[in-house]
């Protein structure tokens, strides 16, 4: 036990130290990484933009065609962009849930709004579970000592060798077995259980990857930050929550994108567990494209474009989080 005076002085010393570190991490405003200009920024920007633009040209073209097709009367692929008729008909049909026309322009209708809500619930649910679980575990593996640490990491990445599609046989068996305990009469509980199981099962697939990713980000945080807080008498959990988390925002943003996309685009799990009561955009699009022999593709193009919008929005949001971590620095 130290006497209170020297302890207080250590404390104040460390506080000053943290202040310094925070100061370093908090530049006046974020303007790219080049605080000291030694080369022609414009030239570098131009060069990189040109190279990336050229390499991405085919992709860019494909998506222009996709968006144009969503307004056209045929799925565009080339010269037909000049001969096609354009209208917002496809979008109207999509929101009315009318898809592939058959003889006499008939449609099976679908509740597209409900489908979007389902997709959001699954995607955000997966994101939430993945974020909480892997940020905790990544911290433990990066910052704490315990036996089998290296082994655990190895095991975790190797788990990825087991493809979801193979794993699903057994995950499905467990699902069927546990579903037996839920009373079928209570449809709401039944459906909720289906949803929750799907979210957790899907999130679990992302966990090993996320932990690996987070560990890398935690590794970069200077130890001084944590020590000083611990010396302050904060608990390990409190330090994790209040000091460390804000420092790994870039990692969290990357993680959030992957987790969100995983939930948003999942086909196999959603299909196996939720069909036919609950449908998401991805399974819905898959179903429509699945009958490519007769399907009316421009509506699929519209559905595909619609599908992209929330993901882009989510991406931009997480990117702001990332930049904020860089320019805003750490808040106490």
């Amino acid at each position: 036990m130290q006497d209170s005076r020297s302890r207080a002085s250590v404390k104040s010393l460390l506080k000053r130290e943290i202040g310094k570190i925070r100061g370093r991490l908090k530049p006046p405003a974020y303007r790219g990484v080049w605080d000291v200009e030694t080369i022609d920024r414009r030239r570098l920007n131009l060069l990189l933009a040109l190279v990336l633009g050229l390499a991405g040209l085919p992709v860019f073209m494909l998506y222009v065609l996709l968006v144009m097709s969503s307004f056209a009367n045929t799925m565009l692929s080339g010269p037909d962009i000049f001969s096609a008729r354009y209208s917002i008909e496809n979008w109207r049909m999509l929101f009315e849930g009318r898809l592939s026309p058959a003889a006499g322009q008939q449609y099976t209708t679908r509740d597209i709004i409900m489908i979007i809500v389902n997709t959001l619930v699954v995607a955000l649910g997966v994101t939430a579970v993945v974020l909480v679980v892997s940020v905790m575990a990544g911290y433990a593996i990066s910052r704490m000592r315990f036996r089998g640490r290296t082994r655990l990491m190895e095991l975790m990445i190797l788990l990825h060798a087991f493809p979801g599609v193979a794993l699903i046989i057994a995950v499905y068996a467990i699902y069927v077995w546990t579903l037996g305990f839920i009373p079928t009469e209570n449809t709401f509980a039944y459906k909720s259980y289906m949803m929750v199981y799907t979210v957790f099962a899907r999130a679990a697939l992302e966990i090993p990857m996320s932990i690996w990713l987070m560990k890398g980000f935690f590794d970069k945080i200077p130890w001084e930050v944590e020590w000083s807080a611990l010396v302050d008498g904060a608990s390990r959990f409190k330090v994790w929550r209040e000091i460390i988390i804000p420092l790994v925002k870039p990692g969290i943003s990357a993680l959030a994108i992957f987790a969100f996309l995983a939930g948003w685009e999942d086909l196999i799990y959603v299909h196996v567990f939720l069909y036919p009561e609950i449908k998401t955009l991805a399974t819905f699009i898959e179903e429509v494209v699945g009958s490519i022999e007769t399907t009316y593709l421009p509506v699929v193009a519209a559905a595909g474009t619609l599908y992209l919008l929330p993901t882009i929005l989510f991406f931009v949001l997480t990117q702001q989080l990332l930049l904020q971590a860089l320019s805003g620095g750490v808040k106490a």
């Binding site: 619930v121 955000l124 649910g125 994101t127 939430a128 579970v129 305990f181 839920i182 009373p183 009469e185 209570n186 709401f188 509980a189 039944y190 909720s192 259980y193 949803m195 929750v196 979210v199």
Partner: peptide, 21 residues
């Protein structure tokens, strides 16, 4: 919102199970 949704669904699912059994 996400946490509320997940938690809500979980609670309802569990309670549903308890009350209906």
């Amino acid at each position: 919102i996400v946490i509320i949704i997940v938690a809500g669904v979980a609670i309802i699912a569990l309670r549903g199970k308890e009350t209906t059994t």
